[in-house]
Design a protein around this nucleic acid. Sequence first.
DNA 1: ACATTGACCTGAGAGC
DNA 2: TGCTCTCAGGTCAATG
Length: 262
Amino acid sequence: MPELPDVEVFKKYLDATSLYQTIAEVETKSRDMLGNVTPQALRQSLTDHEIEGSKRHGKFLFLRIDDEVWLVLHFGMTGFLKYFKNGNDSSEHVRLLLKFSNGYRLAYDCKRKLGAIELTKDPQKFVEDKGLGPDALQSEFDVETFGRILEGRRGRIKSTLMNQQLMAGIGNVYSDEILFHVGIHPEAKARAIKEPMQERLFHGMKEVLQTAIECKVDPRNFPDDYLLPHRQPDAICPKCGAKIQKKTVSGRSAYFCAGHQK
DNA sequence: ACATTGACCTGAGAGC
DNA sequence: TGCTCTCAGGTCAATG
């Protein structure tokens, strides 16, 4: 579930708690989540260094250790960060633990091991090597680029929005939310969406992602006309009163309102 | 080249 | 109660 807004909230949390802290010790709890790095290399690269800054691209979070070393975290669908004082360790599925010299710790917790822990020399290069598209919220990602992407696609709009090589950050939950917001059916063909609908979708995408971040991705904080608080079978659409439908679209469970999404 | 499907991961909740 | 089955959704490999 951690999609762009979730990871952005993790970034803010990291910045508020762990920035400029010195890593005194590194514990690797799950070898099989380490992508391109051994536990020894990870320990060696991080120990006695500070976290100097952070970056996010799509669903990836980058922690700057120094000029040539960045720790890369991906959260799969169950990953999150937890900062706590030594002794208050209540998490059950900690995969990586950074022990700071001030007695606090930062845990990367990932119950279902679909995330990843890696190292890179340069986030920009990492993004290129992964073949990721532009971050969905970055300002250089404009409506013209977005329109060109849609026109080159034979598939459905839902899977287009979720394709990380085309644009990075949107997953199953927020693709539903965006399409619900602008009134487009998840099974619509991407290239059938023309102006002015392209522009409406583009701005809807930015607005939904931004709003989710402002709400700290807590469904209780969401505006009431958003789908997320009603994202369950047989719920009532807050926009038009019709029943929320659930259907498999491109292999993913899509929630939508047939009343106002065409 | 592009689109879709299935596998992987693990635990919660449904259903018998 | 207790077991088994299904589902959740991140990616990537295999297939259409």
